[in-house]
Design a protein around this nucleic acid. Sequence first.
DNA 1: CATGGGATTGACT
DNA 2: GTCAATCCCATGC
Length: 178
Amino acid sequence: MLEVARDLVGCVVSHAGASGVIVETEAYHDSEPACHAFVGLTNRTRTLFGPPGRAYVYRSYGIHALLNAVCEPEGIGAAVLIRALEPLDGIELMRTRRGLGRVEQLSSGPGKLTQALGIDLTENDTPLTGAGPVAIYPCPTARGDVELVVSQRIGITKAVELPWRFCAVGSVHVSRRN
DNA sequence: CATGGGATTGACT
DNA sequence: GTCAATCCCATGC
């Protein structure tokens, strides 16, 4: 799971005419209380405990949709939260969806990037492999080898100490800089 | 069936 | 720096 979180930085996520390069991720696992799957298998966490390579999308604070990639085998509740993107294609469409002009603010946060890509709860439990509406794949240009900085996860109240956040060094598109 | 708490954001002091 | 918006869902009565 941590390996997936590291590998996803530098990959491309695309949906509905827009795409971006992942510059920030966080890992979550059912063994620690910050993870939704910590409470066990419920209707909400069904996707998390399902097969890997699918999207877990949920509503945060009643307002935002947050995108995760489920990443451990079926029966283990673990996922990687996609926290920020560097816009790649469909930037005008992203601007329209976000109602903003500045590229640095189009997708520099987990709620912002789903809005920019047009992702909502209907994409929950769909495959990320290319067979579904949301696709994640390696960056076509030589962007794969990114230097990472590891830190504590953001915006949570439990298991705050785990160093499970991964950011691309120097990116101006991460949600919060060091 | 009622309640409370978020893996956030943007507006405002 | 503070704070409200807003809804899904797990929990408890």
